[in-house]
Every structure is written in C-alpha cells, then in structure tokens.
C-alpha cells in the first residue's frame, strides 16, 4: 500500500551518558543545559563558563572562581585541612563525604583564604556546590567564621560567594547553629566597620540564604541564579497554586528589592574591585 512508503523509521531515545550529564564534561565538547547548544569546552572555559549562545552561567568550582577573580598568585588558602566528623553518627555520612572529596578534590564545601583583587587585599570564602550540594555543616560554618575573624584581624573587606542547597541534614541542629555562628561573626566584623560583600550564585537556598548570603553591605547575584529560603515544590504544595516561572531567580529578587544588582559574570571582577576600592582608598578616612 501507498501508506507503507511513509512509515517512519523507528527512532530510539538516546540516554545521555553520566559524563554528558555533568555541567561541563571533561570531553572536547559541552552541551549547554539551558539552550542545548553544543560548543567547544575550551572556548566555554575561556568564556568564564558562560554559554556563548544563551548567556547561561554554568556553576563554577571554588578554585575556578578564585582564578577568575583574584590577582594571579595572590591566593593563600586558610584551614584547608579542616574536615567533618559525624556528630550524629549518621549512617554512611563519612562515606558520602569521602566520595565527594574524591570527586571534587576539596575537603569540604567551602574554600576560604586571603588574596588581592586589583591590588587590594581581601579575605574571601567561596562555596562549592559540587561538594554535597554546597550544604553547610560544622566545617563550612567554622571555616567561614574563621575567615571573617581573619578579615577582622587584617582589617580588610570580606567577600563571600554562596552556592548551597542549605543546611546539611546529616549534622542536624549543629548545621542550623552554623547560621548563628557565621552571622554573629559578621555582626562583630560589621560593627568594627568591616565591609561585607555577598555574591549569590546558583543555587543559594535554605539556611545559607537565610544567614551570611543575605548579610552583605552589598548583596549581588549572578544572572539566573536560584535564590530563596523554602523550596519551590514545598511552597507550591503549601499554597496550592503554581508559581511564576521566574520565582526565586536573581531577577525576581532584584524586582522585589532584595538585591543591589544582578551582575553578569564578565563584569563581576571589575564591579567587586571597584566596590573594594571605594572602601579602601580616600573615602571618609583619608579624604
């Protein structure tokens, strides 16, 4: 029959390999999770991990961030050796940590240290969401607190890059208390005139968004970053209505007055350097 001529060849769905599902595969080519365009990984990396087609900001690791921001060779890491214990004796917690240590090459979900940005000395903390979703347990809280104390001691600005799913369940209430610990340190630092700049990157949620991420003298976010306290699904279930598409994005927060600015990654270094500079030179002190 004529109809038989038009029978389509059967198509099979292709399941992406484990590697293809990663944000930026090790391979030569990368596929943008947003616009699905395929591009050279090398070019993507050169472009600060921003999609050349749709401007999607890929998540950065802590060390990639340091490389992209600080003056070359200026970074001195703090508390690199600090690692988690298992305070609640949570089944397989230490095993999960080990797995992520092997995967990411870092000991915990935040990297802290000091360095210079356009010649000005700063202390900074950078969360890394590839390690246990950037969740905050005792080590994350302690490292950030010590970094703030370091900034206090050196009398230099404190910059924080957040990327976190929130509190770390496996450390229970101790995780919750890290919100109090870090925020208290920031309060003492702030009262001494210390400058705090927070840059929220994708994703910044839960206990992290409800503590140090929101406590900057300047609160910034990267375009498209998910930022919020409660999870979207929980809110939808609670209020029984669908939420707008842009709900809890950086742009949504800007519209609702929660941010100073949404800053494109390629403008980030200049913006931060400028803000630090305004607080260092001249200003009220030496003018």
């Amino acid at each position: 029959m004529l109809k038989d001529f038009f029978v389509k060849k059967k198509k099979y769905a292709s399941i992406p390999s484990e590697q293809a599902r990663q944000d930026v595969p090790e391979g030569i080519m990368s596929k943008c999770p947003n616009c699905k365009k395929i591009m050279y990984t090398k070019e993507l990396m050169k472009n600060d991990k921003i999609c050349m087609n749709c401007d999607y900001h890929y998540q950065m690791t802590a060390y990639e961030r340091i490389d992209s921001l600080l003056d070359e060779g200026s970074f001195i890491e703090l508390d690199k050796e600090m690692v988690s214990e298992n305070p609640l004796d949570f089944p397989d917690y230490l095993g999960k940590l080990k797995k992520d240590q092997d995967k990411t090459g870092i000991n915990e979900a935040v990297v802290t240290g000091e360095g210079t940005i356009e010649g000005n000395r700063i202390v900074l903390a950078i969360m890394d969401s590839s390690f246990r979703m950037g969740s905050m347990g005792s080590v994350v809280g302690e490292k950030i607190t010590r970094a703030v104390e370091k900034a206090m001691e050196l009398k230099v600005p404190f910059l924080i890059f957040t990327a976190s799913g929130g509190a770390r369940m496996q450390e229970g209430v101790l995780s919750l208390m890290q919100m109090a610990k870090t925020s208290s340190a920031l309060k003492l630092f702030s009262d001494q005139g210390g400058l705090i700049v927070s840059v929220m990157t994708h994703p910044t949620t839960g206990g992290v968004s409800a503590s140090f991420a929101s406590l900057g003298d300047f609160n910034f976010a990267e375009p498209g970053a998910l930022i919020g306290f409660a999870g979207r699904r929980i809110i939808e279930q609670t209020i029984r209505e669908e939420l707008p598409e842009d709900f809890q994005t950086a742009e949504f927060l800007l519209k609702h007055g929660q941010l100073d600015a949404v800053i494109h990654r390629q403008d980030l270094k200049d913006t931060l350097a400028n803000i630090v500079d305004i607080h260092m030179n001249g200003g009220a002190v030496n003018w």
């Binding site: 988690s84 305070p87 080590v139 809280g141 101790l174 208390m177």
Partner: peptide, 10 residues
C-alpha cells in the same frame, strides 16, 4: 555559638 559544631584537622 563559636563553640558549637564538630570538626577535625586532618
């Protein structure tokens, strides 16, 4: 609050 939390130095 500074005292709350458990960690170790490797």
């Amino acid at each position: 609050y500074k005292k709350i939390g458990q960690f170790t130095i490797a």
